[in-house]
């Protein structure tokens, strides 16, 4: 299989909803980003990486809820995520789910912004009892967005930062590596017709011709 040319570097964007400084979520994001970049390099496709810290956009996200459009700083973050070849989505667990800030950022994205985009799901929490939150809240959210979520989600509880695995569980490093390998494989193998964004401008102006559109209304179940 051919690999993307150097002129079309893959874009890996991580979204971190961590609020603390320092933040455990950001710590996890940085390890996942580094591991994914490393594995992509093995595919000959070292990516351009970027981390979107939602805390920096907290006011803009609330404003976008009110006005219906993202302000200029947030717009750049939204466009980076929508244009990414792979996304790492990471949130702390708040009240049995992703944080409100994380969900509000997702709500600002267009419904189709992540359709077909490989996404690695990650979360942090106080105890490992929250770990299935990745499966029962995060994965359905990204299923709705028609993202290509990689099979391994990475949950890091407080204990994980100071523990190895046991006979039943891989330790954090091995889970990170497995998930990063999956994301790198999805990204490197992803078809990119016309280059990453080659046809975006043409698509922007595409319309269904009027008479064809009007005829659709008449068809059974049409419109």
């Amino acid at each position: 299989m051919s690999t993307p040319a150097q002129s079309q570097r893959l874009s890996l964007v991580a979204v971190s909803a961590g609020l603390g400084r320092p933040s455990a979520t950001r710590l996890l994001v940085d390890r996942l980003t580094a591991a994914t970049a490393e594995r992509l390099a093995e595919h000959g496709a070292a990516p351009a990486t970027r981390v979107v810290e939602l805390r920096e956009h907290a006011s803009d996200i609330a404003n976008a809820m009110v006005t219906g459009f993202p302000g200029s700083g947030l717009r750049a973050a939204v466009e980076a995520v929508a244009g990414a070849d792979g996304v790492i989505a990471a949130t702390p667990v708040f009240t049995a789910s992703y944080s409100g800030l994380f969900k509000s950022f997702i709500d600002v994205l267009e419904d189709t912004a992540l359709a077909g985009t490989p996404v690695l799901l990650a979360a942090t929490g106080g105890t490992m009892r929250h770990s299935l939150m990745l499966e029962h809240t995060m994965r359905p959210l990204f299923a709705y967005l028609r993202a290509l979520t990689v099979p391994t989600g990475v949950f890091a509880a407080s204990d994980d930062w100071g523990a190895g695995g046991d006979s039943y569980t891989a330790d954090l490093s091995r889970r990170i590596d497995r998930a990063a390998g999956e994301l790198a494989a999805f990204m490197a193998g992803r078809p990119r017709p016309g280059g990453a964004h080659g046809t975006a401008e043409e698509d922007e102006d595409a319309v269904v011709p009027f008479e064809q559109r009007l005829a659709q209304i008449r068809e059974p179940g049409g419109g």
Partner: peptide, 23 residues
């Protein structure tokens, strides 16, 4: 909606873009 822009164009009617709330 670009469908409405297309509709206005098809008939040769006017198109009013109420631009006051968005960039």
């Amino acid at each position: 909606s670009r469908e409405i822009a297309e509709q206005a164009a098809y008939y040769g009617d006017g198109f009013f873009a109420n631009n006051i709330f968005w960039p």
